[in-house]
Design a protein around this nucleic acid. Structure first.
Lengths: 201, 201
DNA sequence: CATTTTATGATACGGGTGTACCGCGAGGGA
DNA sequence: TCCCTCGCGGTACACCCGTATCATAAAATG
């Protein structure tokens, strides 16, 4: 049987099985054996393509980050040709919020990784750490652009505003996942704050 | 040796050992044996005072909630005799932020419980679920009071504002724990937003 | 004093975990 | 054709987990 095989495809198949388990049952249920079963392969194969569990965890985390990035780009592309700052900010922030099935899956899986990173900080050696900062400065740039267009009060601090918005969206996502709030009400709260931000003084 | 013993004291001793491990190494490292060792007792004793692990987890979570409540009350009491709405809101929100050692410990431990609850929602049967809602309505009440005193623009929606603030503080806490931001800068961002909220129109 | 209850020690059981090792058939290169 | 290495199945090892069981000494109770 052992014909030449597409390694990347096999790795993807296994890593996504891990992500599926992390989403539905949490990372602590994602044992090598469970991942193998979910992917429909033998335990040996998981070991073969990812020699250690840590490698599998890290690879899957990379793929998850890619999925979130792809989703954000899709939402950004959907705002249409004249990409206004307000449209970009709204797209980025609401793409993170767990409102549909995909975003709920992504957010839940990230949450599963969160405590893992907390208890073992060197697990992610300068991996996704830079991404939130990039997002934040992107948002700050859009805020500045909106200020120059007169859509946002010039007295606001762009960095503070961006950081606050991003933190708020993260917090809203946590409360949705925790069941205290629905995704729709979280989105309502977000748009309310965006409306308030984007009103000419 | 078995003199009559203070059960509550023993339970506290063991539960706090659990919380200490959850803080420093995460909940997944908090096995019964590890808790026993940390508390300086035998495994059998942990079983004796909390027959099952779930009971121990739940009891420790209750105690953690009590610690956070006590901290908030201490911060509220510290604002002085004329308790202005702004003082109360500031006290409540900044007491949650992981700025000092105690709040960092509490926030980290709550985060450790968070994913546990996500993967097993019926673990906490209507336990701390109500507390965030109470906090939120308390904050909304203070916002309304400040509006009537003319300290906050009357056009703001109190509930939305309160929900946004609480979510922002939660998100800021996560980013501090994740190492992307210092506790001081998180506090700076919070006070910046509070300054913006509490300016007469 | 006898007996029951309380607080504790020691240890065993069944199961799940990550990893390592052995084997083996089917390509491809010499 | 010979041989090597690629892809993979099966299984074993050592360890950790939560829980259950047995034993026992001290105190409370009668």
């Amino acid at each position: 049987m052992p014909v030449r095989v597409d390694h990347e495809e096999r790795r993807r198949q296994i890593a996504e099985a891990l992500l599926r388990i992390a989403d539905t049952q949490g990372l602590q249920s994602a044992s090598m054996r469970a991942v193998a079963a979910e992917a429909g392969v033998s335990l040996r194969l998981v070991q073969y393509y990812f020699t250690t569990k840590e490698a599998l965890l890290l690879d899957a985390l990379d793929r998850l980050g890619g999925q979130l990035r792809a989703r954000m780009e899709r939402w950004i592309a959907a705002v249409g040709a004249p990409a206004t700052p307000r449209g970009l900010v709204t797209a980025v922030l609401s793409s993170i919020l767990p409102t549909d099935q995909e975003s709920r899956r992504i957010t839940r899986t990230y949450a599963a990784y969160y405590t893992l990173v907390l208890s073992d900080p060197e697990l992610t050696g300068k991996r996704g750490t830079a991404q939130p900062d990039l997002l934040e400065s992107f948002l700050a740039k859009q805020v500045r652009a909106a200020q120059q267009a007169g859509e946002i009060d010039a007295g606001r601090d762009p960095e503070m505003t961006a950081a606050g918005l991003l933190a708020m969206v993260n917090g809203l996502g946590s409360s949705v996942l925790g069941g205290q709030r629905s995704g729709e009400s979280a989105l309502t709260i977000l748009t309310h704050h965006l409306d308030e931000l984007f009103r000419s003084p």
